[in-house]
């Protein structure tokens, strides 16, 4: 088995709230394979991380690895969480969230997942807009542009306007934005507007500034939460590594 493939698959699993890979966030504590079984151990920043998000990540791991050729069983273990056992055994058995928390969860997590996909979309949109503004793009150029005006070439990207080329900026920024548009079922054809609200309405020049303000609040929330989670995870190492040890900061 090629472990790089497994890590690559794991890297595609996101923390739904932070819109970031669980591998990059450091949540994957162990990855082991024995024959056709793969075991993944997750450790989250706090013992109290919301079980709905914990479930989405654990179940995301199972789904990401389940169809890797040669893998027949994915065992996901959530460690040191107040719902460790329920989530670990439940996810490994492929059970739904409502099934695991019958008295407390009244709806499946699709709506929650969708809501955070949208927040992630807003964040990716803002990052794209900021990258383009820094590259000199004017508001009217952005609101008039279509998706087809994005040119990606290796690691860099450009935006073609009627009489200029704005860039370069990191192609990953454009790729992440387009990928999330696809996930949300928003149009991704070359003729569709570059800037779309999550409801599919184009963002015009008049409402651009107001729209940007709302995006900023969403994004600072996401970034601050990510910073907090990373700091908490780092503090938590202390308990796992023994109290005498220096805390990694």
């Amino acid at each position: 088995m090629d472990r790089a493939v497994l890590w690559e698959r794991l890297d595609s699993v996101l923390d739904p709230e932070l819109d970031e890979s669980i591998v990059r966030l450091g949540f994957v504590h162990a990855l082991e394979e024995t024959g056709d079984t793969v075991r993944v151990v997750l450790r989250l920043p706090t013992y109290w991380c919301s079980p709905n998000f914990a479930y989405l990540m654990a179940d995301g791991v199972r789904r990401a690895l389940a169809d890797v050729p040669g893998i027949r069983c994915v065992r996901v273990e959530l460690e040191d969480h107040f719902a460790s056992e329920v989530i670990s055994s439940g996810v490994t058995a492929g059970r739904s969230f409502c099934d695991l928390f019958p008295d407390e969860a009244h709806e499946d997590l699709d709506e929650l997942r969708h809501r955070f996909l949208v927040k992630g979309y807003l964040s990716r949109l803002l990052v794209l807009v900021q990258a383009l503004r820094q590259a000199g793009a004017l508001v009217v150029e952005l609101t008039a542009a279509t998706l087809g005006a994005l040119e990606m070439c290796g690691d860099i990207a450009w935006l073609r306007t009627t009489d200029a080329r704005r860039g370069p900026f990191r192609a990953r920024i454009a790729a992440r934005y387009v990928a999330r548009r696809t996930e949300l079922g928003l149009p991704v054809d070359d003729g569709s507007p570059l800037l779309l609200r999550p409801d599919g309405e184009p963002i015009g020049a008049e409402e651009f500034e107001e729209e940007l303000r709302r995006l900023r609040a969403t994004v600072v929330n996401l970034r601050a939460s990510t910073a907090l989670c990373e700091a908490l995870l780092s503090s938590r190492q202390r308990w796992w590594h023994g109290a005498g040890q220096e805390v990694r900061r």
Partner: peptide, 12 residues
Amino acid sequence: GPTVYPLSKDAF
């Protein structure tokens, strides 16, 4: 603030 429960999207 940071919270654990409840589970459904309305309540947290």
